[in-house]
Simulated scan of single mutants.
Amino acid sequence: MNAPVPIDLAEKFGLIHEHWRPRVAAKLNGQDVRLVKVKGVFPWHSHPDAEEMFLVWKGAFRVEFRDAVRELSPGQFIVVPRGVEHRTAADEEAEVLIFEASDVINTGDAPPSEYTAPVGETV
């Protein structure tokens, strides 16, 4: 077996120049570790068949639900249960890791839009 190579998050985030376009940094057990830069407000959506985990690496990030808003700082994460409507937002640019099944489309059940990222793009 070839020994795995460490992934440098700062280096990988430095290669991302768009907001709301997740890139796959690693794969494990049918899941992606996706890196995304965010700024502004993402559309409301849900993922009927998958949970999502958001881990803030840099900046301030929030997950909005219809009945609550959860503010996250670097080093904090949240798991959005399957089927729960939500949207994500950041007033200033933030860097976030997303852990989810490899076949999950970032906009979930929302209609395709400029926010819909191609599945499987790597960094």
Rank of each mutant, 00 (worst) to 15 (best):
F13K: 07
A10L: 12
G30K: 00
L9I: 10
I98W: 02
D109Q: 12
D67C: 14
N29E: 08
L28E: 10
A117E: 03
K37Y: 01
H47F: 05
L35E: 02
V24P: 04
E18D: 15
R62H: 13
P43R: 07
A10F: 06
V63P: 01
F42G: 03
V69S: 03
N106P: 01
K39I: 00
P111K: 08
I98K: 03
A117K: 04
P22R: 12
D49I: 04
G108P: 07
V119W: 08
T116W: 04
E114F: 11
T122G: 11
E51T: 04
E114K: 10
W57L: 15
H17C: 00
V38Y: 02
E64M: 12
E100W: 00
V41Q: 10
V79K: 11
I78W: 01
H19R: 13
V33C: 03
P81S: 09
T122S: 13
V123I: 14
F54Q: 03
R87L: 06
S102N: 09
L28G: 14
E121R: 15
F65K: 09
E100G: 01
N29W: 11
R87N: 05
E92L: 04
R21P: 01
R21L: 06
I16R: 09
A26Q: 09
L55Y: 12
P118E: 15
A10H: 14
S102Q: 14
S113A: 09
E18Y: 10
P111W: 11
M1F: 09
V38K: 02
Y115E: 10
N2W: 03
G30N: 07
E11H: 15
R21C: 02
A101L: 12
K37A: 00
T107C: 03
V38M: 04
H19W: 12
D91T: 07
E93C: 03
V41P: 03
V69C: 08
V79S: 05
V84L: 01
E95Q: 12
S46I: 06
Y115K: 09
D109L: 10
D49H: 13
V5F: 10
V33T: 06
G120M: 14
S46C: 15
S73K: 07
E52C: 06
Q76C: 01
R82W: 02
A94P: 01
R23H: 14
A89I: 00
P6S: 13
K39P: 01
I78L: 12
R23K: 14
A101E: 15
K27E: 15
G83I: 05
A117R: 05
E100S: 13
N2V: 15
P74R: 04
R87M: 04
L9W: 09
F99A: 13
G120D: 11
V84I: 06
W20L: 06
V56T: 11
H47L: 08
